[in-house]
């Protein structure tokens, strides 16, 4: 069994974000420069490694939907702004979910431009692991543009999935935009499909959004639930 999964299981919890990122990276998914800081002071130090501008997110096994309780700040430009943002988030979380235990802070480099896609995977009771890809961002539910396959898939099949998506046209260079790296997104689908197929303890995973641009496909948020 994977070491990260084993640890979380032994503590009877799902993966926290730094663990999910580490696991995703070990399966070949591309992540932006990031760092996990256990204390507020360390966060400022870690920011030097990640580089500004960056996004900062609270890490807590007690908080699943970070943005709902003000646990995410983006576009942080410097040390002072980072320290201020963390202090504010601490205050807010203490008010809204006083029992939540804060393990630290995730700092991630901001990725600009590109389209937002979603790559996810879950487990069907009868047919086993499946992988899903679709248009991401705030319009996911409005357009319902997703395609699903049994996992694992290989690159060719992942490219076919993208060809089936209506939003797949965005990748080819829509309205004069430069074509995006569709192969990189296809590789993310392949990696996600292998991640769920090879780890029976994973019930569900969500990479949302995956930022796709001419430069590649970068996972900006990772959630992995154990079952």
């Amino acid at each position: 069994m994977n070491r990260i999964i084993q640890k979380a299981k032994s503590e009877n919890r799902s993966l926290v974000e730094p663990e999910a990122w580490q696991l995703a990276a070990s399966y070949g998914l591309t992540l932006p420069p990031y760092a996990f800081a256990e204390s507020d002071r360390e966060a400022v130090k870690a920011a030097a490694k990640v580089g500004y501008p960056l996004a900062v997110k609270v890490v807590s096994k007690d908080i699943v939907h970070k943005s709902n309780i003000g646990g995410v700040r983006i576009g942080i430009q410097n040390d002072a702004a980072l320290a201020h943002a963390i202090a504010e988030m601490r205050g807010g979380i203490a008010r809204l979910t006083p029992d939540a235990e804060i393990a630290g802070w995730m700092l991630t480099a901001m990725v600009k431009n590109g389209y937002e896609f979603i790559v996810g995977a879950s487990r069907d009771q009868q047919f086993g692991p499946v992988v899903v890809c679709g248009m991401g961002g705030i319009f996911v539910e409005l357009f319902c543009d997703t395609v699903l396959r049994l996992a694992p898939v290989e690159t060719e099949e992942a490219l076919e999935m993208l060809a089936e998506l209506r939003s797949g046209r965005l990748l080819k260079g829509y309205r004069g935009q430069a074509p995006c790296d569709a192969r990189a997104l296809a590789r993310s689908i392949v990696c996600a499909s292998q991640l769920i197929a090879e780890n029976p303890d994973i019930a569900e995973l969500d990479f949302n959004p995956v930022n796709v641009s001419p430069e590649g496909a970068v996972v900006l948020d990772a959630r992995i639930l154990l079952g």
């Binding site: 069907d124 009771q125 009868q126 047919f127 499946v130 699903l148 396959r149 049994l150």
Partner: peptide, 15 residues
Amino acid sequence: SVAGDARVFSAVCVK
């Protein structure tokens, strides 16, 4: 019958 998710069954058909 356990009908299951129709989208999963379509994926089964592809596979």
